[in-house]
Design a protein around this nucleic acid. Structure first.
Lengths: 362, 362
DNA sequence: CATTTTTGCTAAAAGGTTTTAATAGTGGTC
DNA sequence: GACCACTATTAAAACCTTTTAGCAAAAATG
């Protein structure tokens, strides 16, 4: 199945998921077994299993019997016990979603869409937030592995190289997102952070008033941070301007961060700033609120706040739905065909220009 | 175990979760079986199972053997196959979390904390968003039921009375939150919406400039909406003021909603407005941005935006962590003791007064 | 010393599927 | 009419645990 076909199938499934037949609830205390059906119909369990798994033709079950079974199964609302099924087949039809923090709007949004695509394909999701705690992260991956999830969707935090490599070595399907691990050859889906930052910086540079343009980022070796910085640098190089870079500690106290950003802007007399994450940009806005000073700015990742803020904040926004769709697509491909080659998918970003980078105010 | 003890245990587990022993990864292709251990140690499978399930004493397994087994198990990193375990015991150690929309900040935050408390107790979470689609919601509940989750945490959308009742009838542990279903006697954990709204309204009333105070809500019969309105009404009654109530369609186009709110404020010459949800309040702020008019206001549910907005927005905020903790506590109680009586927990709200309801500006 | 009780452990069943290997019957071929 | 191929179905093994019921040896009892 080529990619575009696959895409269509997914879309189709998704669209029709909620319009299937009228839903019949079969929540009842005594779950009915395949052996009950076999007895009632005077047929063997094997036959029924074959029919239900679509192997009727292959196993030469007569059409008459096939229909009789199918009808009866529908009538009594039989559903195979998934645990028994999973135990036997080794497939749980569950994916593990490990994000940095599910309460972060970016991840929550991704999670929402991943959920939609997964469910449309018959997969459920176990989720968890790993924070920036490597030990916790490894433990959670181990837990999900022990639960025999069919695949992993992970935002790798630092220090996870070995465990991800271990998963791969054991042929566990994995797809990373938001950032990837250069040393480990895995599937990943990321935004085009480099170009996003490049275009944002260029946009700031094109306003002649912006002589001195700074970049606020985090102390982090993660690829998305590196790429954003590289994009910023390239734009500056093109215009032969000096770079001003400030990195904040990942778990810095908010007021400390605020003070640091304020100093950074003041000391360097910055006219404009590119913030590497929306969280940092929000911290930047608090500088504004506290010190009443705000240079031109662009933030990475959109946020409800940015549209409403006065002035509204320009952003490099990620195509969250596309990312989610690709994630599920790549992962399911790997699950269905373990031989499949590794996929690296880079999704373009969109530069949304608002007032914070154009208005002459401030 | 009384509630407070239980609370302590949870807290303890949570705190120590990440500091346990050094983590040893046992991700490996060939999973080791209990029978392998039995063979290696020349002991029966039964004995090992008893020991691992803490029944050594009860089953009179000698201490010597117990230790030998425990040590060996640790050495080879054996972990029981959870599927086989679940199949046999009927317990999956998985909870189903069904929220209206995981990408909504309120639910994402709750999800984060529910996750923490669940994991600390050895439970994992399957999540999904139901939207406002009753059919989808029922289907998802059915799917989770089929997966034999040990319990449900649900924000019931309208039309779910029957399926929740069905779960209850079949002794499936359920706890509702955010709102409940009056006709069905279930566990629930909700905020004290009535008093929250009452206090917020009273706060607005106490400012003598606010003669006309409106309430913007949704067309919805859900309890939390009803309670918030009742709280608003009671405060107005106390001050013998007229009520101005505007309800917006749940899935209304944003610009339509904006226009409706604007009209509502204009037509009634409102001095102040209480918004029944943070989403509505944000829509209200867009009225401000579009028409440049903003009465005094208080929003329900906090949001990053509100602290930063100029003026900052006063809110009735919910104690999300407490709610999450109670949810898990109540649900696990029910799971562990199916006879346990139904719990109704009402968590107080906090009125956070900011500039939008006090500043003389606008 | 015969009987009962306790100790220490285990064989086998149960949980509910899928899948392998086999069987009994039918029709065709030379 | 012996042999083969095919049809339509199934018994039993496998997946990996937990739990029931029971057994043999040792200790306690009268």
């Amino acid at each position: 199945m080529v990619a575009s076909e696959y895409h269509d199938v997914l879309k189709f499934l998704l669209k029709n998921l909620y319009f299937r037949q009228k839903i019949t609830l079969t929540i009842m205390s005594k779950r009915i077994l395949i052996s009950d059906i076999a007895k009632s119909l005077g047929v063997s369990v094997t036959t029924i299993s074959f029919i239900l798994n679509g192997k009727a033709k292959e196993k030469r079950i007569s059409d008459a019997l096939t229909n009789r079974v199918l009808e009866y199964v529908k009538k009594v609302g039989y559903k195979p016990n998934q645990l028994a099924q999973s135990l036997r087949t080794g497939q749980t039809k569950i994916l593990g979603l490990l994000v940095e923090d599910i309460s972060n709007l970016f991840f929550a949004n991704i999670a929402k869409h991943i959920e939609e695509f997964s469910y449309a394909s018959g997969y459920h999701l176990l989720y968890c937030s790993m924070g920036n705690d490597t030990v916790k992260a490894k433990e959670l991956i181990q837990l999900f592995y022990d639960r025999q999830v069919d695949g992993f969707i992970i935002t790798p935090t630092e220090g996870l190289e070995d465990v991800v490599a271990l998963l791969l070595k054991n042929k566990v399907p994995v797809v990373l997102f938001d950032r990837y691990i250069p040393q480990v050859e895995t599937n990943y889906v990321v935004s085009d952070n480099f170009n996003g930052a490049f275009r944002a910086t260029k946009h700031l540079l094109e306003n002649a008033d912006n002589r001195r343009i700074g970049f606020v980022s985090l102390y982090s070796d993660q690829t998305q941070m590196r790429d954003r910085m590289d994009g910023y640098m390239k734009a500056l190089d093109q215009y032969q301007r000096q770079a001003y870079i400030k990195k904040i500690q990942i778990d810095e106290q908010e007021d400390v961060a605020i003070a640091q950003i304020f100093e950074f802007i003041e000391d360097n007399k910055l006219d404009a700033v590119l913030f590497a994450t929306n969280y940092l940009a929000i911290t930047g806005l608090k500088v504004h609120k506290k010190y009443g000073k705000l240079p031109a700015m662009v933030a990475f990742d959109d946020h409800t706040l940015f549209k409403l803020h006065e002035p509204s904040i320009s952003v490099v926004s990620q195509r969250i739905e596309t990312i989610a769709e690709e994630l599920v697509k790549v992962l399911l491909r790997q699950i269905r065909n373990p031989q499949a080659d590794v996929k690296h998918i880079v999704v373009p970003c969109d530069l949304k220009i608002r007032d914070s980078s154009t208005a002459k105010s401030n």
